[in-house]
């Protein structure tokens, strides 16, 4: 199962992406684009919100983390969209890696992610590779944004910025989102295979035609905050 958390919503519009687009709407559209691609790759998808929240309400960050932790997802993606920068930013928690807590036993809320940091960085790395192979510029990093530190699953914050250069595209561009969704699905599939082995593949794996071959073993998981393709 993959948990998607389209950030913001309701009374919290997030960043202003354009005159007509708030971040809360853009993250929801991004989640909608990711869902079919992930389902096609054989993943069950759970989302913290599938529609716009009622006016004057918000979905608290702790509640989002609680939903993800309760679902015991194999991977959690916190989705953000920004008008600044370029390409896709993948960020993991800044917490130092710690031994994973025993399932079923309570973990400190503020550092719940510590036991999953290594796997989160491995996930970010797989996603980064897949995005690079999908011709999308990637920056790897670490961030302090909540609720990343509260998640008890391999968790990556995925922030989508406009594409600049010869073929500029805004984050709400359908082609850009489709390209992104395919790369994310491919990265998640490779991460899942690396974590569980070939015997525990997703229910209905359907390799995407553009999916790259399995990459070489990863380097040091303690990757720095920033990375460029």
């Amino acid at each position: 199962m993959v948990f998607l958390d389209p950030a913001h919503g309701g009374a919290d519009p997030g960043a202003r992406i354009s005159d007509q687009l708030d971040e809360k709407t853009a993250t929801l559209a991004l989640a909608a684009a990711l869902r079919p691609a992930l389902a096609q790759a054989g993943f069950t998808v759970l989302s913290s919100r599938d529609a716009e929240l009622p006016v004057n309400t918000t979905l608290p960050l702790d509640q989002r983390a609680g939903l993800a932790n309760h679902a015991q997802a194999a991977a959690c993606l916190v989705l953000h969209v920004t008008a600044a920068g370029s390409g896709v930013h993948l960020a993991t928690s800044t917490l130092d890696a710690a031994a994973p807590t025993t399932p079923g036993l309570p973990a400190p809320w503020d550092t719940a992610q510590a036991g999953y940091v290594e796997r989160s960085r491995a996930l970010a790395n797989e996603l980064g590779e897949a995005l690079l192979q999908g011709q999308l510029p990637v920056l790897l990093g670490r961030t302090l944004v909540p609720p990343l530190d509260n998640l008890t699953c391999p968790a990556v914050l995925l922030e989508v910025a406009p594409l600049r250069g010869a073929d500029p595209r805004q984050p709400d561009d359908a082609t850009y989102q489709l390209q992104l969704a395919r790369a994310v699905a491919a990265g998640l599939r490779r991460f899942h295979q690396a974590q569980s082995g070939d015997d525990h593949q997703p229910a209905k794996p359907r390799p995407h035609p553009a999916a790259p071959a399995r990459p070489e073993p990863q380097g040091d998981a303690t990757a720095p905050r920033g990375a460029t393709p």
Partner: peptide
């Protein structure tokens, strides 16, 4: 709207250089 200002941050050297995924 994103980065928390309610936390106390450790004062460390934050300089870093970019690297490729898997590098």
């Amino acid at each position: 709207g994103h980065i928390s200002l309610t936390r106390t941050y450790p004062a460390v050297d934050t300089a870093y250089a970019p690297a490729l995924p898997n590098a």
